[in-house]
């Protein structure tokens, strides 16, 4: 019994210690922002490996999600004779929820896990300590460019996801199922607001990008420097990011759309 309590206390203490290290790490990353902006080449390289390489995954997924929404939405709405509302249904669900959330989940799986593995291996092969030996701050040189690139990439990828999704819904709804093209777009125009819907979706994706990058970079930085430790850290990144995205999504939705 005493042993159980001791273990519980130790676990709690460890998780708080990790949160503390993580917060300090995040602060150091943010303090390095100015130095990175002076060397945009570092940022460009990371934008390539984080953003450009996720481009196809996100756009293809967006297309299919939009097409499925078009099919299912048509099936349900036509029961009520309201298939003109297909456009607004597809666009609202994509812009408000599915775009930011599914985009962020895919991004965490595609870019977040790769970042953790990369940094964990850098640590395991002592590249990070090597940099410190050469008086190069590994946080400014390695972490901050990745962090900024992720925060820039995810909103753009989310916008791409939602836009391609709306076009996918158009493809299925209008081209295949014969919903009127005019009402598909017109109801969408009437039903969505720039600030309420689109800006809030963008804010969501910025928050998700921030959290995913924080988790991914910190898990890599904090990984036990063995092959098993890196593999566990990679798993934790994907699992914890998914939890964080879904939990935060609920909170953000309640804050943004609670009063409508």
């Amino acid at each position: 019994m005493i042993e159980l309590l001791r273990q519980l206390g130790e676990k709690t203490r460890h998780s708080f210690a990790k949160l503390g290290r993580g917060s300090f790490f995040l602060m150091q990353i943010i303090m390095g922002t100015m130095d990175v902006l002076r060397r945009p080449a570092l940022l460009s390289k990371q934008l390539y490996s984080i953003g450009v390489l996720s481009f196809f995954l996100i756009s293809i997924s967006g297309l299919f999600v939009g097409m499925v929404l078009g099919l299912q939405g048509y099936y349900i709405l036509s029961n009520f004779g309201a298939d003109e509302a297909l456009g607004v249904m597809v666009a609202t669900s994509l812009v408000r929820e599915l775009g930011p959330v599914v985009g962020a989940l895919l991004f965490a799986g595609r870019a977040g896990s790769a970042l953790t593995a990369e940094i964990g291996l850098m640590k395991a092969t002592e590249q990070l300590s090597g940099m410190e030996m050469m008086a190069i701050d590994p946080i400014k040189r390695i972490m901050t460019p990745r962090f900024l690139a992720g925060i820039i990439s995810l909103p753009l990828l989310t916008a791409l996801f939602s836009s391609v999704g709306v076009l996918g819904g158009h493809l299925v709804g209008v081209e295949m199922l014969g919903v009127d093209e005019g009402s598909y777009w017109a109801q969408m125009h009437a039903g969505l607001d720039v600030y309420d819907d689109i800006l809030n979706g963008v804010i969501k994706s910025v928050v998700f990008g921030f959290v995913i990058l924080w988790i991914a970079l910190f898990e890599g930085y904090d990984a036990i420097p063995t092959s098993e430790g890196v593999s566990r850290a990679t798993t934790r990144t994907v699992v914890n990011s998914a939890f964080a995205i879904l939990g935060l999504d609920f909170i953000l939705t309640a804050l943004m759309f609670g009063d409508i």
Binding site: S44, L47, Y48, G51, V52, F55, A91, V95, I152, S153, P155, L156, L157, A159, L160, S162, S163, V164, V166, W185, M188, H189, A190, L192, D193, V194, D197, I198, G201, V202
Partner: peptide
């Protein structure tokens, strides 16, 4: 490629603002 990616991303933000909503 990075430039293209950023351009397409901003393009889709504009698409959302102009085409999807009532901006």
């Amino acid at each position: 490629l990075v430039g293209l990616f950023v351009a397409i991303g901003i393009g889709s933000l504009f698409f959302m603002a102009m085409q999807i909503s009532n901006f």
